[in-house]
C-alpha cells in the first residue's frame, strides 16, 4: 500500500515540469486540502457509527482520521501561504474564501484534543468526542458554502481551476489527488497499527508491573482505548 502511494506521489513530479515552477505547489496543496476535508467528513461518519454501535473500534478510526487530517491541514495552510506569497505577494489574503474557511475549520478541529484531554472518564470521553466530530464534520461543508457565498457576492469567480486547464494538468492533478488519498489511507493504517501495538505493549507491561501505578506507567493519553 505504501509503495503504491509513494510511487504515485513521486510519479507526478516529472509530469508537471513543463509548468511554471511555483504552480507545482498546486499539485500538493489542492489534493492535500481536498483529502483533509474528506478526512474530516469521514471522521464524522466513523463517529456516527461509533455512537450507533458503541464499538470503540469506530472511535479509534474517527480519532485517527481526524488526527491525520489535522496534520494535513497544517500542511495545507503552510503550502497555501507559500503559494499566496508567490502568486499574490502576500502571506495571507483575507479575500480568498478558501484560505479563510480552511483556517476556521482548522481552528475548530484544533479543539478536538483539549476536549478529549479534559474529560476523565474514558467512555464519556469517546462519546463526547464523537458528538464533537459529527457536529464539526457537518460544519465543514456548511462553512465552506457560507464563506464562498460571502465572496461570490463581491466578485464572482469560477468554481474550479480544472475546467479551463489543459488535459495534462487535469491528469496530473487527478493522479496527485489519488496519490494523496492513498497516502492518507496508508498513514491512517500505520497510525492504527502503531496505536494497537502501543496498547498491547502497555497491557504486557501492566501485567509485568503487577497492575500498580497504572497512570504513572502510561502517562496521560487522550487516545481511545481498545
Amino acid at each position: 500500500m505504501l509503495t503504491i502511494a509513494f510511487a504515485l506521489v513521486f510519479f507526478y513530479a516529472p509530469n508537471d515540469a513543463d509548468q511554471g515552477f511555483i504552480f507545482k505547489i498546486f499539485y500538493v496543496h489542492v489534493p492535500m486540502a481536498i483529502v483533509a476535508l474528506f478526512g474530516f467528513v469521514a471522521g464524522a461518519v466513523f463517529a456516527a457509527l461509533h455512537l450507533r454501535s458503541q464499538d470503540s473500534k469506530w472511535d479509534m478510526r474517527s480519532y485517527v482520521t481526524i488526527h491525520i487530517s489535522v496534520i494535513l491541514a497544517v500542511g495545507v495552510l503552510v503550502t497555501g501561504s507559500i503559494w499566496a506569497r508567490a502568486s499574490w505577494g502576500h502571506w495571507w489574503i483575507w479575500d480568498e474564501p478558501m484560505l479563510v474557511s480552511f483556517l476556521i475549520v482548522f481552528l475548530l478541529y484544533a479543539t478536538y484534543w483539549p476536549l478529549r484531554f479534559s474529560i476523565e472518564d474514558k467512555e464519556k470521553q469517546s462519546r463526547y468526542a464523537s458528538v464533537f466530530a459529527i457536529v464539526a464534520g457537518a460544519f465543514v461543508p456548511l462553512n465552506f458554502a457560507a464563506v464562498r457565498m460571502a465572496e461570490s457576492f463581491t466578485h464572482p469567480q469560477t468554481a474550479t481551476t480544472t475546467t479551463s486547464a489543459p488535459p495534462s494538468v487535469t491528469l496530473t492533478f487527478l493522479v496527485a489527488l489519488a496519490g494523496m488519498t492513498l497516502l492518507f489511507i496508508t498513514l491512517c493504517k500505520y497510525e492504527m497499527a502503531s496505536k494497537h501495538a502501543t496498547f498491547r505493549l502497555r497491557a504486557l507491561r501492566r501485567r509485568l508491573a503487577g497492575d500498580e501505578d497504572e497512570l504513572a506507567l502510561n502517562g496521560r493519553s487522550a487516545a481511545p482505548q481498545l
Binding site: 476556521i104 475548530l108 476536549l115 479534559s118 474529560i119 464519556k124 457536529v135 462553512n143 457560507a146 464563506v147
Partner: peptide, 26 residues
C-alpha cells in the same frame, strides 16, 4: 458538549467561536 470537561470555560469559546463564525458573518 463541554459541561463534563475540566476546563469548561476554555473549551466553550474554543469550540463555539469557529462554529458561530458563519452566524456572525451573516
Amino acid at each position: 458538549l463541554a459541561i463534563q470537561t475540566r476546563a469548561r470555560d476554555l473549551i466553550v469559546p474554543l469550540i463555539a467561536l469557529p462554529l458561530l463564525v458563519p452566524v456572525l458573518l451573516a
